[in-house]
Design a protein around this nucleic acid. Structure first.
Length: 218
DNA sequence: ATGCATGAGTG
DNA sequence: ACTCATGCATA
């Protein structure tokens, strides 16, 4: 696993982070810069109050501030170990935690930048924390272990919605975030896009609104 | 880092 | 048909 992470610099604008699953014609510096928002949430807890029985199935009690702090620490320590987001994702499978397999670079990235839903963050935290501990322990032992991994193949194409169309969609979304199937069809025709593309766009837009960073009062 | 997409689960 | 967690492909 000793994939290296080039000491990246941050460019405030846009940068790429490439964790090459396989050799590529061009290289990028891996960098990451995330603005930190200072959020002052109050979400306050603990009222140990007594509520009758205890039949609850989920009492996720983790404040946003705690998560934010963890994500930040996680990222720094991960980089310190010289491990990429993609490496973390695949290494998770080696932890053999029941019901936990590997994750993609995307998901690790989103965890670090808090662009996942609150529940998703809560669910992933213990797993990533476990990985981090293992990784740091192994690092101390420094028992070098090579890991020959090979790449994959290229497949799918990604449709891209042009800026003008995107602006229209945003306008529609503003007035109606959940258009009916027929409304979607109408929009699709006006913008000359496939109906399914429009439908998925709305779904993703809604999901975006629910991400930690933008959803919680900030 | 992020846009568009899939699939499981729910109603 | 939607939500939610997640990922491939790409900027």
């Amino acid at each position: 696993m000793g994939v290296s992470e080039p000491p990246g610099m941050n460019a405030p604008a846009h940068h790429h982070q490439h964790q090459h699953p396989h050799p590529h014609p061009h290289h990028h510096l891996q960098t990451m810069g995330q603005l930190h928002q200072a959020m002052a949430n109050m979400a306050h807890p603990h009222s140990l109050s007594a509520h009758g029985g205890m039949a609850c199935v989920s009492d996720v009690e983790s404040d946003p501030r705690e998560l934010e702090a963890f994500a930040e620490r996680f990222k720094q320590r991960r980089i310190k170990l010289g491990v990429t987001q993609a490496d973390v994702g695949s290494a998770l499978a080696n932890l053999k935690i029941p019901g936990v397999g590997s994750l993609s670079q995307s998901t690790i990235c989103r965890f670090e930048s808090l662009t996942l839903s609150h529940n998703n963050m809560i669910a992933l935290k213990p797993v990533l924390q476990a990985w981090l501990e293992e990784a740091e322990a192994a690092h101390r032992e420094k028992s070098s272990k090579p890991d020959p991994f090979s790449g994959g193949e290229r497949k799918r194409k990604r449709t891209s919605i042009a800026a003008p169309e995107k602006r229209s969609l945003e306008a529609y979304f503003a007035i109606q975030p959940r258009p009916s199937s027929e409304k979607i069809a109408a929009i699709a025709e006006k913008l000359d896009l496939k109906k399914n593309v429009v439908r998925v766009w709305f779904c993703n837009q809604r999901q975006k609104q629910k991400r930690m960073k933008y959803s919680a009062v900030h």
